[in-house]
Design a protein around this nucleic acid. Structure first.
Lengths: 329, 329
DNA sequence: CGGAAGTCTGAAACCGATTGCAGAACTCTG
DNA sequence: CAGAGTTCTGCAATCGGTTTCAGACTTCCG
């Protein structure tokens, strides 16, 4: 059995209230009493019961994290970041995976919302009004998506796309293809838009191949369209798709990067292991997790006092083996 | 503000005790009263406060899950399984990632153990006595490791290795290399042992290349040893290493599977995306997660009444592109 | 019809912390 | 030295449920 505050109090010869104060508002108690209490607590291995504390303070000490699919390599990194930062602040992380299922997501949210002080939500495709409704009742931070002025952490896709386009332009490419992810995904829309702007500014031609599932298979499916479109370079919605492209392009007898250059987005582990290795717009996923927790905790501290609730993380083009000079024939 | 049990009681015209009973021990209350209570609860959107309940019952409704490194693709699948099964039983999952750091692990365990009813622990390399000590104070289930008679979920490595060896033998291989993972890892030891037995039984020669970090880089590092050893086939501790092997072998000018056959273990997503695709001993990782939760909840229900606390999950060789007939020159 | 057994319900204690309030002890100040 | 002001501590209420216990009311049976 774990020690209770009463036992510590008895052991230290004070009242429970004093123990409570000595531990959570140390400057309210006399230094020598405090010392005595702390020693007693130490000796008994006392740790406050979270349920009891939560009951009166109304806080759980937990944050919830909801991701659409852990099997997508983007998310484990995010989770790691959230996890690490949360622990530093002595919060525990309740993790839930919705399996890309909106109904499951709604359920999860209902259940989870009661067990946590705040939520970090990755819901690229959930309905906006659902999210707004949720935000009205819970403190939440969105990741990889913006909904109005709600707190969020996103990546600077615009700059990422600019870098990618500049890189291709420098290599002599004039026509670039886009292999899109889910039409309904916020970041997909954000990236297309950014890419349109960037290519237009660079005087390059953009050919959109359409929308595909954001997986390896999606890239495979898109490859033939890309070849047919005659572009010399292509940017994919994410690395997984870019890797699928690579695979199918090779099977079609094309040489990357001699015949065609390929750029992904995310910088997942795998992109450094493919051959050729994948040039990609690197996202600091773990940073995003940490930033989300940061923001969430700040909001919990002072619901209105946070200046900047919409954070944008930098992106960085990572040039590897899948991009090269455009063929000139 | 959420409704409390008292408000429901008032609304239904009964006492709080009756509400409590109507919800958690329905057959103790008169059907018509029960109906009235349930309707009131429904109307007010009542959901019991977990902290309050936990305070008196001593249960949190949480299970803890500790993994060494989410970035290793083995674990997200496991987490998914744990997650899904836990939710079915109305438990929440507290996730922690130790970053392969034993000190962090100890800390985490201390903190987490108090917030959960039971723990699922993947600690391939933690000290046995630490684990035993923990098991004495907490209900826990180990995954991918056996420690004495403690509850655990592991894979049938012996059979997996038998299948792999039989496959290679059928392809005419006589000499097989082993690229080991961390020496201190339980499953590494289990697999080597199984492989020794299997190759001996098949009359094949086994060459152990040593121990390497269980990552892509480990496989790269091992490749040259493998080539020098002159084996025609090689089995790696896990897929990530096998993929590293593939990469380096290719760079050394070897053709897989013509010059050498490669087999991994795990069946991670990536192994279907490499070229050649990777033949591997497939582990049902999500199943393992579910099984661990199953076992844990059973133990929580009736600490002594569980017949079989050491579960072993089947393994299945998945033949893909990286294995072929042995060269005969 | 009386009493035993059974069925429901409510009052109250309790889980383990936090916190408002009040009083004790001490320090200052004029 | 009286009185005001500080500083520190303890009492008791409280959070929102669960559970023990006892009592009210039925039902059943001899």
């Amino acid at each position: 059995m774990r020690a209770t505050i009463r036992e510590v109090a008895r052991d230290a010869g004070v009242s429970p209230s004093t123990v409570s104060r000595a531990l959570s508002m140390p400057d309210l108690v006399n230094p020598v009493t405090r010392e005595r209490v702390l020693r007693a607590a130490q000796r008994l291995g006392y740790e406050p019961n979270r349920a009891a504390r939560g009951l009166i303070t109304g806080r759980t000490g937990n944050v919830g994290l909801i991701v659409p699919d852990l099997a997508n390599p983007f998310f484990p990194s995010l989770v790691k970041g959230v996890q690490a930062k949360a622990r530093e602040a002595d919060y525990a992380v309740l993790l839930a995976d919705t399996d890309e299922d909106p109904a499951a997501e709604r359920d999860l949210l209902r259940v989870l919302a009661k067990q946590v002080d705040g939520l970090i939500l990755c819901s690229p495709r959930g309905r906006e009004e659902d999210i707004r409704a949720l935000a009205a009742t819970t403190t939440l931070v969105m990741v990889n998506r913006r909904v109005g002025k709600l707190p969020s952490v996103v990546f600077d896709n615009a700059d990422g796309m600019r870098q990618a386009v500049a890189h291709l332009q420098a290599l002599g490419h004039r026509r670039v293809g886009w292999v899109g992810g889910p039409r309904s995904s916020w970041s997909n829309r954000d990236r297309v838009r950014a890419l349109q702007t960037a290519t237009a500014a660079a005087g390059m031609e953009l050919l959109v191949a359409g929308n595909f599932p954001p997986q390896f298979e999606g890239g495979i499916a898109a490859a033939d369209l890309v070849i047919a479109s005659g572009v010399t370079s292509v940017i994919a919605y994410n690395d997984l798709m870019a890797l699928g492209l690579l695979d199918r392009l090779r099977n079609r007898g094309m040489d990357v990067p001699r015949d065609i250059s390929v750029i992904g987005i995310d910088d997942i582990q795998m992109s450094a292991m493919s051959s050729p290795t994948l040039t990609t717009v690197s996202l600091t996923k773990e940073q995003a997790g940490r930033a989300a927790v940061d923001l969430l905790l700040a909001l919990l501290e002072q619901p209105d006092g946070v200046r900047n609730v919409r954070r944008e993380l930098p992106t960085q083009l990572l040039v590897r083996g899948s991009t090269g000079v455009a063929r000139t024939d």
